[in-house]
Design a protein around this nucleic acid. Structure first.
Lengths: 145, 145
DNA sequence: CTTGAACCTCTAGTTGCTAGAGACATTAAG
DNA sequence: CTTAATGTCTCTAGCAACTAGAGGTTCAAG
């Protein structure tokens, strides 16, 4: 059992953010000490690290809720879990493709820089390239995120 | 020359968001028609697509500002550009590693689902794994994003 | 048993949009 | 050439996901 401060340090999630996640239901309500302070077991560390990474990768709290539900209700219908997993997989692959393109371009720029010039920066072109992302740029699509 | 609505459609960025980006300086102030409506050339399409993708990949507007500065000021010192590019490259690679791990896990789950069970979901473990991300989980680090 | 760090709740502010009101501009149809 | 529909304008307000601060309580080291 650890306090919220310890949990914050091990996961890198700020203390108020942890309380916020509890408030919005991403974390279960914590046990309390006799003096009303939150106490956490090690399972929360994993869960919170997961949330942190997923947020950092650009997933919304809603998407994260979906992903967590895969873990939380292992006995739910496979069809439902499958649908969630597949939708998220599409989103993940899409991001991978674009990140790879950006990686290559940054590498190119750094290499060019070593030769003393960055006159032809194509960093904008790279992510502007439609072919790299498998989806349309529609309003609907944007909302999904 | 296209109107803001057309630009919105081709890039998938909502009209008010485009105006917002202009307001915060990510887009230059647009030319205006005689009737005071914004008009955009094709360069803005690329720039806006870039911003959209970068946002979607989880970069902050500040990080995007940095990346755009590589394009905007090709005559700036190579050392500065190099530093920005290298920092962003580290961030990009970090994300790639974690996204790949998540991809693999989602694939595994979907495969397992095809066999009728998802009893052992390890989706949380995957992103909770410290070894996959090259950075410490410190407050400072979190602020950088 | 005290004192200073860590914790509590609650309210308010920040970032990055997003939606709505009310007014002007543009376009296409009659 | 008018008029209706659609698009755009500015401005204000709201939402998501935090983040910081005030004012008070708890804990744990000395």
């Amino acid at each position: 059992m650890q306090t919220i401060g310890k949990l914050s340090k091990t996961t890198g999630v700020k203390v108020p953010t942890i309380r916020y996640y509890e408030e919005v239901g991403l974390l279960p309500e914590a046990e309390r000490s006799t003096g009303n302070q939150r106490l956490y077991g090690s399972a929360t560390t994993d869960r919170l690290s997961f949330i942190r990474h997923a947020r950092d990768l650009g997933f919304t709290l809603e998407a994260i809720r979906d992903l967590l539900s895969l873990s939380d209700t292992p006995d739910q219908s496979c069809a439902a879990a499958d649908q969630i997993a597949k939708a998220q997989l599409v989103a993940v692959r899409d991001r991978l493709a674009r990140l790879r393109a950006l990686e290559i371009e940054l590498e190119r720029m750094i290499a060019q820089c070593a030769q003393g010039t960055i006159a032809d920066c194509r960093v904008i072109k790279v992510l502007g390239n439609h072919d790299l992302c498998g989806h349309e740029h529609s309003q609907k699509d944007q909302a999904v995120q």
